[in-house]
Each structure stands twice: as structure tokens, then as C-alpha cells.
Amino acid sequence: MIRHLVLFKLNEGVERDDPRVVAGVRAFEELEKAIPELRSWECAWNISDRPIAYDYAINCSVEDTDALQRYLDHPAHQAGVGQWREFATWVIADYPF
């Protein structure tokens, strides 16, 4: 199994209630039922207000590297990522577990 972690930081001046952000969150919340490769799926706003904290996180798992690539290439994933590019930056980590 592979864990796929993504931490998102909203761009300067962008708030959670921005309509683009609301739509982007909705797109990510719908990925679990849209992408069969996902074995687990969590996404949520960070509750920490520390200065180094990121704003939003995705924590999911897939079976193997091939499944990870299918997830990354999936049109629903690509559409969600396209939305987030407009208002956030992110970092990722993929690791076996």
C-alpha cells in the first residue's frame, strides 16, 4: 500500500469562504466515490493556527504505484487539482506502508 499525503496552503489574501475554494473542496470531497483506486480517503481543513501550518490536507491510500498513477491521472483528480492551482500551493509525500 502507498500513502499519498498532500498539504495545501491558500495563497495570500484567499479565504476559505472564497467561492473558488468552496468549489475546490467540494471537488476533492467527491473524489472518494469517483476514483476506484482509492482504498482510503480523508480530506479536511487543518484546525491548527500555528504560523507554519498548512490550511487543508488530503490523506489517502492506494494499492501500489500503478494505482497511484491511475489516481493522479484520473480526470476527476485532474479537474480538482486544476481548481486548486488558482488559489493554493501544496506539498506532497508518497510512501509505502
Results as ranks from 00 to 15, higher is better:
Arg3Gln: 13
Val14Ser: 07
Val25His: 05
Val6Trp: 11
Ile58Arg: 14
Glu29Asp: 15
Ala27Phe: 06
Trp41Gln: 07
Asp64Glu: 03
Glu15Pro: 01
Tyr71Asn: 02
Asn11Lys: 08
Val21Trp: 01
Glu29Arg: 14
Glu37Tyr: 02
Leu10Thr: 00
Ile2Asn: 11
Asp55Gln: 06
Ser40Glu: 10
Glu63Ile: 07
Leu68Cys: 06
Trp90Leu: 02
Arg50Lys: 13
Gly24Trp: 04
Arg50Ser: 12
Gly80Gln: 05
Ser61Val: 04
Val25Gln: 04
Ile35Pro: 00
Ala67Asn: 02
His77Gln: 09
Val62Lys: 01
Glu32Phe: 05
Gly80Phe: 03
Glu63Leu: 11
Gln69Cys: 10
Phe8Met: 02
Val62Phe: 03
Pro51Phe: 09
Glu12Thr: 11
Pro75Phe: 03
Gly24Ile: 01
Ala23Val: 02
Ala67His: 06
Met1Arg: 11
Phe87His: 06
Cys60Arg: 01
Glu15Thr: 09
Trp84Val: 04
Asn11Arg: 09
Asp18Pro: 01
Glu15Leu: 10
Gly80Tyr: 01
Ala44Gly: 15
Asp17Val: 00
Ala88Ile: 01
Gly24Ser: 10
Asp18Val: 01
Leu7Ala: 12
Lys33Phe: 09
Arg50Gly: 11
Leu10His: 01
Asp66Thr: 13
Arg16Ser: 07
